[in-house]
Each structure stands twice: as C-alpha cells, then as structure tokens.
Computed example of a mutant assay.
Amino acid sequence: MTTTPRPAGAPLRLGLALPQYGALADPAAVGRFATAAEDLGFTSLWVGDRILTPLEPSDLYPGGGTPEHPYPREFETFADPFTTLAAAAAVTRTARLGMSALTGPVYSPVLLARALTSLDLASSGRLDVGFGLGWLREEYFATGVPWEGRGRRLEDLLDALEALWTGDPAEHTGPQWRIAPSTVGLRPAQEPRPPVLLGGFSPPALARVGRRADGWLAGWMPEQYLTGLWSVALEAAAKAGRDPGTLRRVLRINPRPGTAVETAADVLPCLDTARELGITEVLVDLHYVAKDVDHALELAGDLIAG
C-alpha cells in the first residue's frame, strides 16, 4: 500500500513547540507565549519530555549526538510537560495541545490517565496524547523501569489507558500492570478518548502506529524514508481491519544551527515538501534557534508571514 496524496492546496495546519527547555525554559512565560501563538494562527501547541541528562550517558541522542556532545545542551534545562500544557490550556481557546512525545513506558497508567484526562477536560477536549519509547536508558533506570521489553510495556500501557478511559468499572490485567475493578468518575471530554499518536522511526514502530494509534509523530527525514515508513503504518492498519485513511501524520521540524534548516525562513521549503507528500500537520520547534521567548515569538511570526 502506498500513500495517497491529499488534493493539492489542502490546508497545512501549523503547530509550534511551547517554551519548555534550554534558553526558553520559562514556565511563567508559557501563558503569554501560548496566547500569542494562537493569535498568530498556530493551530496546535506541543511539549516534549526529558527526564534526565546524565554526564556520561549510555546512549547518544539519535538526532546528532556525539561522544563529545551526547545530547543537545538545551536538554539540561527542561520544564515539566504536564504543567506546561496546563498553563497553555488555561489561556487558549482553539489550538490543540499535544505531546511529541512522552516516554510512555516510564509512566504508571493510573497516574497518567488521571493527568491526561484532567488536561483534556481543562482544554475542553483539545488534547492529543503522544508517546514514544525514548532513547536514553538512564531515564528508565532513574524511574525504576527496565530498559528491556519497553515495546511490550508501551503496548500494555495503551491497553491500560484504553480500559481506564472507556471502562465502567475500569479494570486491566496485563504483563506489567494489574488494575483492580474500579470506579473512575473522571472521563475525558473527547469520546471515547483523546487521540493517541505514536513516535518511532523503525518498521516495528510504524506497524504499531497502524495497529494501535490514531497517527504518527514523524520527524524530518529524507523523503524516501518518510514515505516508506508511512507505507508500513498504512499496511498494518489495513491488516488490522482499520481504515488507513483516518491515520494522521504530524511532521516535526527542528530548525538547528549548522544545518540546512537554520532559521524560520529555511523551514518554508520543508513545508512545501510536506504539502507535496499529503502531510497536513507540521510541528515547528524553535528551541535550538531562539535566544529567548520573545525571540521565539518573533521567529514564529516570520513563519506565519512566510
């Protein structure tokens, strides 16, 4: 199965990462930033997840880590994703609020369901839940979760969340968690639950997207990989008896110094490529090129104007 391009001229929904890490890590500025971004015309606002930055990590950041610089220095200062989204939810009206992405397996499904349901209600049903496996094993060790079997743990997490969001009473018995039959009075605003998007850049990850998720959190990569991996998700959805046409793609673009995409203006050709591929949702993360929150808003304005 191959990707069916959307009609030419299909609207591109442009999202923006909230100020959460590095020089932009200012929880007190999130409300002001979110309000301005929505007023500019951004249709979604996003957070990421970084739990730990060890001095000598076992794994290099897949987005360009080296032994000398194993991960971006911006990761050393990282605000809580739930608090950041709650601050944005309080001051916005229409922008969707997403996660790209939580390291799903390190979270307890019971506590996670409570937090996510609360966010969905606080935003009047604007939450997109995003999960990935992460890449740094020290984050697993620090949260008391084994690195091995993380894919199975994510599958169990999805099953448990589905039960907690839709069951009455809710219960779950899986390889990782047992949740006794329980009354859960807090229900999501979106029915039957908030959309779940999954990240990943391997065929098994994309097969999971097709089988389990509402869409793929994609990263910028050569066109042949974007289309090839997407075909894996579409085929998996069809085999699972799901409609492949309902799957979403959210393409993340990180302008970064020293690369071909360094400024807001450099992102515009990427947006054209996204349109050509039939992608209608793009997330731009300005943390690596903005000096502070005000500069990020200035760059965001340039993006919209371009």
Rank of each mutant, 00 (worst) to 15 (best):
P5E: 04
L14F: 05
L16A: 02
A17E: 10
G22T: 08
A25N: 05
D26F: 10
V30S: 04
V30A: 14
G31N: 10
G31M: 12
A36V: 09
L45E: 00
V47P: 00
T53M: 06
L55M: 15
D59W: 13
Y61N: 06
P62G: 13
P72W: 09
A79M: 08
A87F: 09
L97E: 01
G98D: 02
M99A: 11
G104F: 08
A113Y: 07
A113D: 10
A115G: 04
T117H: 14
L119W: 07
L121D: 03
S124L: 11
L127K: 03
V129C: 10
V129G: 03
F131T: 02
W135V: 00
Y140M: 10
A142E: 03
A142Y: 07
V145F: 14
E148Y: 14
G149W: 02
G149M: 00
G151A: 15
D156A: 13
L158T: 05
W165T: 00
W165E: 02
A170R: 04
E171H: 14
Q176K: 12
W177D: 06
R178W: 10
A180K: 08
P188L: 00
P192Q: 02
P192L: 13
G200L: 05
F201D: 15
A207Q: 13
A207T: 04
R208F: 10
A213P: 05
D214E: 02
D214F: 12
L217F: 05
E223A: 13
E223K: 11
Y225E: 15
E235I: 06
A238Y: 02
A238W: 10
G241P: 01
G245T: 09
L247I: 04
L251Q: 06
N254V: 15
G258W: 03
A260M: 11
E262F: 04
V267E: 08
C270L: 14
D272T: 08
R275T: 13
I279T: 08
T280A: 15
V289N: 04
V289F: 14
A290I: 03
K291L: 12
D292A: 05
E298Q: 14
L299Y: 01
A300H: 03
